[in-house]
Design a protein around this nucleic acid. Structure first.
Lengths: 259, 259
DNA sequence: AAACTTATTTGATTACTGTCAAATTAAAAT
DNA sequence: ATTTTAATTTGACAGTAATCAAATAAGTTT
């Protein structure tokens, strides 16, 4: 009994760290009771541990992480290559003209694209991606038509027959497409077969197909094939792409834009 | 015992940040109640957090620091009675059963409803609202079908023939409906005629219609008539409703649930 | 303009903090 | 084994921070 209470400095620190890990927060008074030591001792302990960056001191206690460097809710995936993706988005947005009717597929790069649509430009946008439609809510000049269907949660976009059916009723100037893989032999691919099928329909109802893909996508193959490279009019990518691939693509009649 | 309920500054700030992330908007008075502290304290907290760029201060509360959400109309509405709306959402979610197929219309109250769907409950949800579909992305057990159509930006939901057409192919256990006005003579209304039309279709393809409406909606009339009260099976509202209205509704065969 | 809601300021109250010298404990030297 | 020395812990105290109720000011709505 008495043995348990007799803790030295190291043991006490261990106890405090365990406890704070478990509860996120601890307060001085409780620690005093539990460790049967005075508040002065606890404060000294906490001070020491704070200096070692093992916890953060607060009024009356301590927390695991600094409450003021709180996680800014930014999607981790979006962070990757975000400057490249933004540049690609800017370049694609420059291709837009007044009164264009466009299809925007799903994908993070496309999100950067719609964010860079010039304010006030009159457009009709049809999209399968919910996050893209929501992004366009702030643009009064853009008329948005959301495709319907089964929600694919990993891409926050819809797929299926309903979406494809609606596409039949329109003809678009341009499709802005994002992909998971571009292979010189196999063509464009994405990870989901149904999504690939929808993308193919989008290509069929659009005059022009522009692919937005950062350079990491080249040489990769996803599960679902969208189309061959002969169906692509233009690819916008970053300078990570090799000259060989550029030459090959241009040989196939694809315009390559490097940002 | 009492200590557990007592939150200190750090814990309170954590709570506020979590809450604001979830609800987009929080108001001072509600935080006072929930955290059992005075308004002075809450304001001080919000001021501090604003200085750290973790939120934006507004009259009566604060909003998330999100440059992309320029979604004023919805956010303004969310201000009103958010605890009441949450309670209504909780009550509605309790009515759900395993393998139900439901339609969820648009509206802030419905957002609270879907947030309170029990985790792991198998459901098929068809919805016109993009924000509701996105909210359900985190629920693996819920299959989500997004209706397509023209995006109404003020409610972040779709309207139009495409959405109505898709509804024809299903039959649902329950429709969870949000409205802008409930008038004892005129019936249910919303501000937009096309949305009203879609809502009527939803009623037609559902076995049961449950209306979620806080008590401020009673006696109001919107522009677009959805239906008369005879088409409503149940209304879930808060205790701000008068007994007279309750009696009248029950006389019409409507079950009134007060939270 | 009045009625209402939300903000800020003030002063009192309580709780927490750091610092001190004194007391206790542990370790080292005799 | 006993004394000396160093480290740790403690209780006391003055200063600081956090909170609240009440009063006042500033917006908002009607």
């Amino acid at each position: 009994m008495t043995k348990d209470n007799m803790m030295n400095l190291a043991e006490r620190h261990q106890f405090i760290l365990n406890r704070i890990q478990r509860d996120q927060y601890i307060n001085v008074v409780e620690l005093c009771k539990e460790l049967k030591v005075s508040s002065v001792t606890i404060r000294k302990d906490l001070k020491l541990l704070e200096e070692k960056n093992l916890l953060f001191r607060t009024h009356g206690g301590a927390t695991v992480n600094n409450p003021y460097t709180v996680d800014r809710p930014v999607n981790e995936k979006e962070k990757i290559q975000s400057t490249e993706k933004n540049k690609i988005g800017v370049a694609a947005a420059k291709l837009l003209k007044e009164n264009d009717s466009i299809v925007v597929a799903s994908g993070t790069t496309l999100l950067y694209f719609v964010r860079n649509i010039p304010p006030g430009l009159n457009l009709t946008v049809v999209t399968s991606a919910l996050n893209i439609a929501l992004e366009l809510m702030g643009e009064p000049a853009v008329e948005v038509i959301q495709l319907g269907g089964l929600l694919r949660k990993s891409s926050s976009s819809v797929m299926g027959a309903y979406a494809e059916q609606v596409l039949q009723d329109f003809y678009f100037n341009t499709l802005f497409l994002g992909v998971d893989g571009i292979d010189l032999d196999y063509g464009l691919t994405t990870t989901n077969a149904m999504e690939a099928h929808l993308n193919r329909k989008m290509i069929n109802v659009s005059q022009k197909t522009i692919v937005l893909a950062d350079s990491t996508k080249f040489g990769k193959r996803g599960f679902g094939k969208i189309c061959g490279l002969e169906d692509v009019d233009q690819i916008i990518t970053d300078k990570g792409i090799s000259q060989q691939i550029v030459n090959h693509l241009e040989g196939l009649g694809v315009t390559v834009t490097i940002v």
